[in-house]
Structure formats: C-alpha cells, structure tokens
Design a protein around this nucleic acid. Structure first.
Length: 512
DNA sequence: TTCCGACAGTGGGGTCGCAAT
DNA sequence: ATTGCGACCCCACTATCGGAA
C-alpha cells in the first residue's frame, strides 16, 4: 500500500468532525490493507510509529525539503527506513538522522510530508488516535468495539491485537487475557474538588493516600520480576529495591499496581523531582540508589496465583492484596461507609497532607479494575492553591489555537516594585477568553517577538496551582506546579498582585 | 431533550542521557 | 566541560461527539 493513501485518509479524517465518520474512514482503509501492511498501517492511522519515538524532533524536521511530484513510497518501505533511523547512534548521529529524514521527505509528496512530519513529532492532529482506531478496527472486522478495546488494554498494544484480529477474526480476541509478565494499561483516576464530593458520588469507598512518585506495575512469575511504568516501559533494571521487594513477598505469581517513591531516613517522602530523577537514572543505578533509595507502595492486585482479579470488585482485589503484601508496603487507607463518614475522611486527608503526601484517592469498593481507562470510580482529591499574578507576556498558540495568544508568562511582584517570571500556563482558557486575551494583550504589547508578545505588566490573573517546586530556569529559584487560569481579575491592579515573599512563605518546605 | 463519559488537543516543568560544541 | 535536544516522568483543562438517562 502506498503511503499516499494513508496521507489522504488522514486528511479526510482530520476534515471530518463526526467521530462516526472518522471511524468509517479508518475502517475502510483497514479492510483494504494487506496482511503484511497491517502492523504498519494500523499504528500510522492511530497517529503513532510502531517503533515509538525515534530521536528526531523539530531541530531535524524543521528544515523544509522540496516535495516529490508523484507518490512512490510504500508504507513498508517507509517503515523500514524509519526502523533504520531508530538504530542510528554514536558520533555523527545527528547528521545521519538528518540525512535519512531528508531523503525520506524528498521522496514524499507534499501531502505525504505533512503526514510523516505529524507521525515523527507525534502530532498528527487528525482528531483520532488509539480510541478511534479501535472503533475503526472493530467496524472493519465485525468484532464488538468493547471487546476490541478490552483486548487492546490487556495486550497493551493496538498493533498486536489488530494483526491477530485481521488474520483470525473476532475469535482471536479470546487470546488476549491478563498474563503475568505482560503489562496491561493501568487504570487512571478522575479529579474531585473535595472528599465530600467524591464520597457523595461513590457511596461506600476506600480513601487512600496519594503518593507523589512514579506509577509501577510489578509482575512476578517464579524468580522472574518485571517492572513497568504507566506507559508500559520496562524499568526493571533501574529499581533493584523493588525487584528485591517483589521476590521477598510470599507469592510465586502475581501482578501488583502501586507507586514507587523515595523516603528520607525520617520517613518523609522526598519531592517528586528527587524520586523522578532517581527512577530516571539508568547508567549508574547503584550510586543513584545509595543516594536516593526508593520503595514500592502497592494499592491494587490485578492477578494472584492463577486468578485474574480484574473483574472482581475493588474490595475483593484489596483483600487479595492484603493477604500477599504486608501493611508497610501498602498505601494507608480508611474505609468509608457513606456520607456520615465524611468528617473522618477529611481528617484522614489532613493527616496524609501532614505526612507530606499529595492528597488522597477515593475509590468505590464495588468497581472492577478498568484497565487503560479513567474509571469513574477512582477520584483524586488534592489541595489547590491560588495566587493573583501579573501577565508579563504571551506566546502564539498552535493547532486550533493558531492566531490566538495562548501561553501566558506569569509574574509575581518583588519588594522593589518589579516583577519576576514564575512560569507559564495555557490551561483553563475557554475560546471566548482566548479571544479576549489576544485582543487585550495586543493592546498592552510593548514588544513583538516571533513567538509572541511582551506586555506592560497590567493584567492581573488568578492562577490555581498544585504546589511549588525548585527551578533553575526561573529567577526566583522556584516555579508553580500545574499552573492554570481561574479567571482574570480586572478589579485588581498589578500593585495588588501576590509577591514572591508571600509565595515562599506559603510553602515553607520548598526553598529556592 | 438534556446530561455526561470518553477523547483529542494544547501545551506546562523537571531530569536524564546523548551528541554537538 | 558545557549546552541543546529529545524522551519520558508527572499533569489540568476545554471542546466535541454520541450514547445514556
């Protein structure tokens, strides 16, 4: 199959607004694809490369290449060239990557170039990724969409399921069950603004501490242990402590879900930055582990022995977890029968925060484990802080925000009446607010840049954020975590904005 | 008819490892 | 030795579609 066909369908999918239309377009293409092309066609139309990321970004891709007049590239040839691209390393790698990409783009028509650049940057912008591709695959094969979705979650891979399904039809889905040693996509949580709100939604529930570390799924089969991240990367080699802890548990076969985090000698959690840095260290793990030891803390059991627990209610999965894992290696929790217990749950949240953790996750006791989904039965509750800051500049947006000033530069007041930048945000803005701020900020502009504008510090904006973290990038030595716009404060003058000093005073545990 | 769950898109900061400078 | 880039951790929020209520 020619790449041109995929590029054409991708353009049509992007142009269609109805999801049902996108699904139909994808299904048609999947039916056309020859068996050998399927392992490439499916991920490409889901907006991803089967090889994953290839080490090329805008630095290499930014240089325009004259397009070919006629399409000639086949999907398999493109796939082979990109596999080669992924294998480039060592001195001269950047030039070699640029050469390979340049040659590929030169062989591509304008339409194909656009599609390839989207794939390589991970931004196809066709309004369809894995989920719509799953729908398309179901439509193409006549398999129920829910069954296909479930198989993909359990396989952790759309490509594998697609190949099996197109080769053997719907019965192939039976093969995709939870298997010890093969990671499944983890269940995720929604947010709630308070414990009371979460309990009102869920009824009988468990309130568990939320640790600010790295999510892990730990598989043990006999003496073999594998540790995977949220995106199913294998990080076993980086976490010898977790490996040892899994082998020390009194069970030969299991799959557990939890968080890896580093504690100080006093038992306080280290900052996310420290834990993430440790888990990210690959070269000298022993030295990293000596400086920042980590520990697993589990909260769910997906499989124990030969039993697949995914469809059991959380209460039963947790009972299995408690049989296998000793208390200190499980998250702290309290059980709540209903709304009459809300004060106790709030007390639990307060104590969890005192211990230095992020917040809590409220979990319905009846719900199954929804692999790969943001289940309605897990609700995280974290304290939200707010500040009144001043807009110092703004950057032009991309995609659907093209032509709008989108990403705001946020400043706090200093003692001498000036402002220092604390970070940026683009979140929390409605289309109407985007339009309004674009106009307003252009009026206030004192300097036009290629990337946006610098403005007179006059607009005050209320910003919500999750906490403070150290920064080497910003002059105050700190930056906001997960900053987002709440509203503009046109009733406030910049002299009334919050200062760096008040910000630091509100977070005494974080020092620049 | 209205409501709400699921998705895609739009990017944020930090840290590590690698290659270029 | 330092710098820049890309991958991958953490993530919030809005718009939209389409099925559920």
């Amino acid at each position: 199959m020619l790449l041109a066909r995929l590029a054409q369908v991708s353009r049509e999918v992007a142009a269609a607004s109805a999801r049902s239309r996108k699904t139909a377009l994808l299904a048609e293409l999947f039916r056309e694809a020859a068996a050998e092309d399927v392992p490439v066609v499916i991920p490409y139309l889901a907006g991803r490369l089967p090889q994953g990321r290839l080490g090329v970004g805008w630095k290499v891709l930014g240089r325009p290449v004259p397009p070919a007049a006629e399409p000639s590239l086949t999907v398999r040839e493109v796939d082979a060239r990109l596999t080669g691209l992924g294998e480039v390393s060592g001195p001269g790698a950047q030039a070699e990557r640029a050469r390979i990409v340049g040659a590929l783009l030169a062989a591509a028509t304008e339409d194909e170039q656009r599609f390839l650049l989207g794939l390589l940057t991970g931004e196809v912008r066709q309004g369809a990724l894995d989920a719509v591709a799953v729908e398309g695959l179901a439509a193409a094969t006549g398999a129920p969409a829910a069954d296909v979705r479930r198989a993909v979650m359990l396989a952790g891979s759309l490509r594998t399921v697609a190949a099996a399904l197109l080769a053997d039809g719907p019965p192939a889905l039976e093969r995709f069950r939870l298997t010890v040693g093969r990671p499944v996509l983890p269940m995720l949580a929604h947010s709630a603004s308070s414990v009371a709100e979460a309990v009102a939604k869920l009824g009988a529930c468990a309130v568990e501490e939320k640790l600010d570390g790295i999510r892990v799924q730990v598989h043990r089969d006999g003496r073999t242990v594998r540790i995977h991240t949220r995106t199913l990367d294998d990080i076993t080699d980086r976490l010898p402590e977790v490996h040892a802890a899994a082998l020390a548990l009194p069970g030969e076969r299991f799959v557990l879900d939890g968080e890896v985090i580093s504690f100080t000698a006093e038992g306080r959690p280290r900052s996310f930055q420290e834990t993430a840095g440790r888990v990210g260290s690959r070269l000298d793990v022993a030295t990293a582990a000596a400086a920042v030891p980590v520990a697993p803390v589990f909260f769910d059991a997906l499989s124990v022995g030969d039993r697949d627990l995914l469809d059991l209610p959380f209460a039963e999965r947790h009972a299995e977890l408690a049989r296998l894992v000793p208390e200190p290696m499980r998250v702290r929790r309290t059980l709540v029968a209903g709304e009459e217990d809300v004060p106790r749950a709030e007390e639990f949240l307060a104590r969890t925060l005192e211990r230095g953790h992020e917040g809590v996750v409220v979990k319905g006791l009846d719900a199954p484990y929804s692999a790969g989904r943001r289940g309605a039965s897990w609700l995280k509750v974290k304290p939200v802080h707010t500040l009144d800051l001043v807009v110092l500049g703004a950057e032009w947006g991309h995609g659907r925000r093209t032509g709008r000033l989108s990403n705001l530069h946020l400043g706090a007041r200093t003692e001498d009446g000036g402002f220092v930048m604390l970070g940026k945000t683009f979140k929390g803005l409605t289309d109407a607010l985007l339009a309004w701020q674009t106009e307003r900020l252009r009026e206030l502009a004192v300097e036009e840049k290629s990337w946006g504008v610098l403005v007179r510090p006059e607009l005050v904006v209320e910003i919500a954020y999750d906490g403070l973290q150290r920064s080497t990038r910003y002059p105050a030595g700190v930056t906001l975590r997960f900053a987002r716009v709440v509203r503009y404060r046109e009733d406030k003058r910049p002299e009334e904005a919050d200062t760096v000093a008040t910000l630091l005073a509100a977070h005494p545990q974080v020092r620049p």
